[in-house]
Computed example of a mutant assay.
Amino acid sequence: MDKLRALELFIATCEEGSFAAASAYCNTDPSAVSKAISRLEAQLQVTLIQRSTRQLSVTDAGKQYLSTARKLLQELSACEGEIKHLNDSPCGVLKVNSAVCYGHLYLRPVLAAFCARYPEIKLDLQINDLHTDVIESGVDIAIRTGYVKDSRLVAKRLSPMDFFVCASPDYLAKNGTPALREDFKAHQWIGFRIKETQQLQPVYLPDEQGDYALYGLEPSHITDDGEMMVAMCEDGLGFAQLPHFLAKAGLEAGRLVSVYPHFRPPQIENGVFAIYPKRTYLPAKVRVFLSYLADALEKQNESAYQTWAERVAYVR
């Protein structure tokens, strides 16, 4: 910073013609200007400005240095302006990484309207269920289920994650509705394998008091794709425990029914999160995307604290 300040004072001296005028222009005192230029000359081991009692004159070396210094500070100023514009104006490439199901079911429906509102933002979408290092991959926002414990990141909850135990109406008509959780052992069950860990998603079922707890079930079928699990459930291949965003379309259309009220795991990390690098100044493109997504969720009765799941009727 001292070098930049010295360059500013040197340029001002050359343009204003004296230490006094340069000091007034730069809001400092003449001795500070003189000392700054003397330090530059000592570092370069050349004379930049000839001093006399009557006037200052810039040497040939000083003129060459002045030309370069001007270009450097102009380029720096232009760069700073561009960076500030990127931070203040919604523009540039927005790199979003999303879990597959959430990306297809919740992000895709809002993208066209978002891009129409912010035409200077270009989307770079990565849709996968694999762990992504947000910092290393240069991702602006990652949409993930579950909280990521990383001090370099901010995790903003978009909504809780509510679960339903679902089946198709045809399956229930043919096989009946379980009365107790033990009855599920006599039914077909569709399990979900988590790609990252290759572990089966734990199943929660209520006891006679209605308290949900982990329950061991041997799945009849297994898939690692959420939309496939929904399709298998709708096609009558058995029961499935589905997060609200996967169950939504099937429940609304009547292709699925829930046999219990929705269940929300108690862990603090439960939910759908927008994860992004911790920064002092959040770029405008990130701010507007988060705001737009939150508004879109609110229109379908979802927020950081609740989902539409509590309004869903269930069959018993």
Rank of each mutant, 00 (worst) to 15 (best):
T13S: 09
L130V: 11
G191E: 14
R287Y: 01
A99G: 13
G236Y: 02
E252F: 07
P243V: 10
K122L: 09
F273E: 07
H85Q: 12
K35D: 06
Y102L: 14
P261N: 00
Y305A: 11
G210C: 10
Q198M: 13
E298P: 00
Q241F: 08
E80G: 13
C91M: 06
H221A: 08
V58N: 02
Y260L: 05
A253L: 07
C233I: 01
L9Q: 06
A112L: 14
P266N: 10
S67F: 12
E252H: 09
H244M: 03
E302F: 00
P169F: 04
T280W: 11
W308I: 08
Y276F: 15
V312Y: 08
Y260P: 12
G17E: 10
S18G: 06
F273I: 03
K63P: 11
Y305E: 10
L76W: 05
L66N: 08
T145F: 11
E82T: 07
R264H: 06
H85W: 00
G250N: 09
P243M: 13
D170H: 00
I121S: 00
C233D: 02
Q199Y: 15
I49T: 09
E15M: 09
T132R: 10
P219S: 08
A294N: 09
K3L: 15
Q126G: 01
L130H: 11
Y314D: 14
A142G: 13
R108H: 10
E136I: 07
F289A: 02
Y147P: 03
V230C: 01
E234I: 12
G138S: 13
Y25C: 03
Y102A: 02
Q45A: 13
S98I: 03
T68A: 14
F114Q: 06
T59D: 05
A12L: 11
A42Y: 02
D295T: 03
A61D: 10
V312H: 05
L237E: 08
D124F: 04
R264G: 08
T307E: 05
L158W: 02
M228D: 03
L125C: 07
A69C: 12
N97T: 04
H85T: 04
I275N: 04
C233W: 06
L111D: 02
A186V: 03
A116D: 13
P265N: 04
S31K: 15
Q241W: 02
A309P: 01
F239C: 04
R54D: 05
L180S: 13
L7P: 04
I222R: 03
D162N: 11
D211R: 14
Y305L: 09
T68S: 15
S23G: 04
Y147D: 07
G250I: 02
Q188V: 04
D211G: 03
Q55S: 11
E120Y: 08
N175E: 08
G17Y: 13
G191S: 10
D235F: 09
A313E: 12
V100T: 14
L297P: 00
E252V: 08
E234L: 00
I275A: 04
T47N: 14
K299W: 02
C101L: 09
E252S: 06
Q50H: 14
